[in-house]
Amino acid sequence: MRAGFGIEKRSTTSWLWQAATGILLLPLLALHLIANHFVVAGGERNFAEVAACMGNPAIVVLEVLFLVVVTSHAMLGLRSILFDMGVPTRWRPALGRGVAILGVLTVAYGIWLTITIIR
């Protein structure tokens, strides 16, 4: 350690994950927007159309993948924004865990909703 600056690595892979999820989001988000909002009359599907759409396993897999990737990207971003708000270093691990829990809950909610719609 020199002059108070260390080589500890607690969060340096975050940038890479943020970049990777961001790249993955480009095709996933484009697909989501085009398939669900642009090629659909009125921009939204009615209940019967949603149910029919979610009957296709490939669409379900893609939508869940989209949910996981978009939530990961959002949570990494949220964590970065919160850290940049001047949060004391000692609080960062707890804040990071809190954001991770929020992400897990978000994905769990999305999967629950998907299962409910399919049924």
Binding site: N46, F47, A48, V50, L113, T116, I117
Partner: peptide
Amino acid sequence: LLAHGPSTWN
């Protein structure tokens, strides 16, 4: 709202 059925969503 989708979980509340067709009438709510529509």
